[in-house]
Computed example of a mutant assay.
Amino acid sequence: MHDDFLNPQTTLSRRHALALLAAPLAAAPALGVAAALPQITLAGPPAIVSAPLIHMAETGALKDAAQRTVFTAWRDPDQLRMMAMGGKADVLAMPSNVAANLFNRGAGVTLLNISTWGALWIVTRDAQRKTLADFKGEEIAVPFRGDMPDIVLQLLLTKQGLDPLRDFRIRYVPTPMEAMQLLITRRVSHALLSEPAVSLALRKTRSFPVGLIAPDLHRGADLQQEWGRLLRRAPRVPQAGIAAVGVVRSQPQVLDAVAQAYARSLAWCRDNALECGRMMARHIDLLTPEAVADAIAVSQMDAVPAAAARAELEFFFGQLMTPTPQLLGGRLPSEAFYHASAQRPLRGGQ
């Protein structure tokens, strides 16, 4: 908006005001809209999927779409759902099943991309445990009961004939950071974590340097490799991405701008991992730049546009729905769930 309209002490002539209102669209910003939005609010968890959103907010990557871009963190899936349904954010990083569930329940969600394809490990004190079956009979701290990553763990255990409740002692905790704290303080020996909590736990216990004689913690079962082995597919899971909610969904050019900016920011984060870590640590408590850089190095991050990811998502959703249809609201999301970009896709790896 023109600065004169923001200053109540400035009096415009009627001719000047009419001239501003009648300005041709050709003179508008590159998005082809009459004016940028006042603000776009981006939101995400303390996970690696949020790194590009933070970079977008800090660098003004959406300056043609909005006068201001801000990032805010959500702590758990319940807060995420409240933000999505209460209009507290415009674009949220979220697990793919949560996005599909919200869409099927009429909450108004448009998936823009899937960008996290592998960031789940069981971190353990026993370096010999490398597959999920190796943890049979053990206690495992697991965050977000009934949500990602718990649902991936249960799916993979069931696929190999194991019962998550009878064959394991699952200790549910509210968040990944609480699971990590239990592990670091030796109250559990194994925890299911996503990045960057995995790398943070290794850093805090000095388990990261190559050649350390007796590291305290180890990367145990890689859930992405387990997925590939058990499902006979590529070792990648369409775990999370970004989705638009609320009124911004009616502006496809803004959605294109967000999707393109996210892919560019993801590429920057991969090329500048430590600086990306510094940005992320400024917004999310407990994280350190070094742990974020470690996480970027090992996570499968690729900003695949929603429409291009649909086939892999529907396979994943189909696996989830077989035992628990309510995870997705009882059905696969329709075509309207997937944002169809009008621009040439820019992949995060480019």
Results as ranks from 00 to 15, higher is better:
Ala293Pro: 01
Asp126Cys: 03
Leu231Met: 15
Arg264Ala: 05
Ile213Ala: 15
Asp216Lys: 15
Pro333Val: 03
Pro215Tyr: 00
Ala308Phe: 09
Arg203Tyr: 06
Thr185Leu: 14
Arg282Pro: 00
Tyr172Lys: 05
Leu223Trp: 03
Ala273Ser: 14
Asp126Gln: 06
Trp227Tyr: 14
Tyr172Leu: 10
Ile242Ser: 04
Arg81Val: 15
Gln128Phe: 08
Leu320Asp: 04
Ala244Tyr: 09
Val173Lys: 05
Ser189Asp: 11
Glu312Asp: 14
Ile122Asp: 05
Thr175Asp: 06
Ala36Leu: 04
Val304Ser: 09
Ala141Thr: 00
Asn97Tyr: 09
Trp268Glu: 10
Gln239Ile: 13
Leu80Pro: 10
Asp167His: 00
Met83Asp: 01
Ala28Asn: 08
Gln326Asn: 03
Ala221Ser: 12
Ile48Trp: 04
Cys276Lys: 02
Phe337Gln: 05
Leu31Ile: 07
Arg105Pro: 00
Arg129Met: 14
Leu153Trp: 02
Arg331Val: 03
Leu183Arg: 03
Asp222Met: 14
Gln39Ala: 15
Ala244Leu: 11
Leu192Lys: 06
Gln154Ser: 09
Phe317Ala: 07
Cys269Gly: 12
Arg347Gln: 11
Cys276Ala: 15
Gly246Ser: 09
Ala84Cys: 01
Ala308Asp: 14
Gly211Asp: 03
Pro235Phe: 13
Gly106Pro: 04
Arg278Met: 05
Ala197Met: 10
Ala127Asp: 03
Ala23Pro: 00
Arg236His: 11
Arg236Leu: 14
Arg81Gln: 09
Arg15Cys: 01
Val210Gln: 08
Leu274Gly: 10
Asp150Lys: 10
Leu92Thr: 02
Leu42Pro: 05
Val33Glu: 14
Arg270Cys: 03
Glu314Ala: 08
Ile284Asp: 12
Thr72Leu: 03
Leu332Arg: 04
Glu290Arg: 14
Leu217Tyr: 07
Leu21Trp: 00
Lys159Leu: 05
Asp222Tyr: 11
Met82Ala: 12
Leu165Phe: 03
Thr124Gly: 11
Pro176Gln: 11
Gly318Ser: 12
Ile184Thr: 14
Ala141His: 03
Ala61Ile: 08
Ala261Phe: 01
Ala244Ile: 05
Met148His: 10
Ala133Leu: 09
Pro289Leu: 10
Gln225Val: 07
Ala107Arg: 09
Ile140Cys: 04
Asn113Arg: 00
Cys276Gly: 09
Arg81Gly: 07
Ala179Phe: 02
Arg236Lys: 15
Leu120His: 07
Tyr262Thr: 10
Pro77Leu: 08
Asp271Thr: 08
Ala336Tyr: 04
Arg129Asn: 14
Ala17Gln: 13
Leu332Lys: 09
Leu328Phe: 05
Phe5Cys: 13
Asp167Ala: 06
Asn101Ile: 02
Gly241Met: 02
Ala22Arg: 13
Asp134Arg: 01
Leu37Trp: 08
Gly211Leu: 13
Gly220Trp: 01
Val198Gln: 08
Met321Ala: 02
Phe5His: 12
Ala26Glu: 14
Ile140Ala: 07
Ala133Cys: 01
Ser250Cys: 02
Leu193Ile: 03
Ala28Ser: 15
Met85Gly: 06
Gly277Ala: 05
Leu20Phe: 08
Ala221Asp: 06
Ser207Arg: 12
Ala73Leu: 06
Phe337Lys: 10
Ala99Asn: 00
